[in-house]
């Protein structure tokens, strides 16, 4: 009993250091946006002949969930955590998996409730995709900046991802939920992200430090 209480207290401390309260608030706000957007389409500027593209809102509503899930891996005590043992990595993996599952449940439920089941599936797929991007971004620029690669991915896919009628093969966010290829791609992106999370720290590089100050 004491051990369980101690473990819970450990987890609570981990959660406080990793902004889990803020992540919960972020998830709540993102869920509200997902409910509001429902299954509606967003009309955004694009490169095709029309000059705009109409995309399912889930191509955008999944981004905040992914960024909050990956961004919460940042810790207020990052400088001390650098020298942590293997326990921290396990905790981070459990943390990320839990956050991703919770995000999937929230966006899936919100989109299904206000849109359609197919839209909910697309939302979950896009969440997986952007979560991979966010982890890669955290690795490249620091965990506080987990939003950079997902945003870049969104911009590229939104602007160049469709010929005005059909999405291109690589614009996975635009594919309908039964496109097996898009699910494979989303899974591959998440795998890349997890690999980025598990990779050992980089050797010292001056460039990376000056691109975005670590603090």
């Amino acid at each position: 009993m004491i051990a369980v209480t101690a473990r819970r207290a450990d987890l609570l401390r981990y959660g406080r250091a990793h902004h889990l309260g803020q992540m919960a608030l972020g998830f709540a706000a993102a869920t509200a946006v997902a409910c509001w957007a429902g299954n509606s389409d967003l009309v955004l500027p694009a490169a095709n002949g029309n000059g705009w593209t109409e995309m399912a809102s889930t191509a955008a509503t999944a981004i905040p969930f992914a960024v909050f899930a990956a961004g919460s891996l940042h810790s207020a005590m990052a400088s001390l955590e650098q020298a942590a043992g293997g326990r921290l990595l396990k905790a981070e993996l459990v943390h990320f998996a839990g956050a991703l599952l919770l995000a999937a449940a929230l966006i899936g439920t919100a989109t299904a409730a206000t849109g359609s089941a197919g839209g909910a599936a697309e939302a979950v797929r896009n969440l997986i995709l952007y979560a991979g991007f966010a982890l890669v971004s955290g690795r490249l620029f620091g965990r506080s900046l987990s939003w950079i690669v997902p945003l870049a991915g969104f911009v590229v896919v939104d602007f160049w991802g469709s010929d005005g009628v059909h999405p291109y093969w690589w614009a996975w966010q635009f594919h309908v939920y039964d496109s097996a290829w898009s699910w494979v791609a989303a899974g591959a992106c998440l795998a890349c992200g997890l690999a980025a999370l598990l990779l050992p720290p980089r050797p010292l590089t001056g460039t990376a430090r000056s691109l975005w100050p670590a603090r």
Partner: peptide
Amino acid sequence: VRYCAWLRGVPDD
């Protein structure tokens, strides 16, 4: 300090 103990892998007990 307790969190740092956890980070270091000091046994729970």
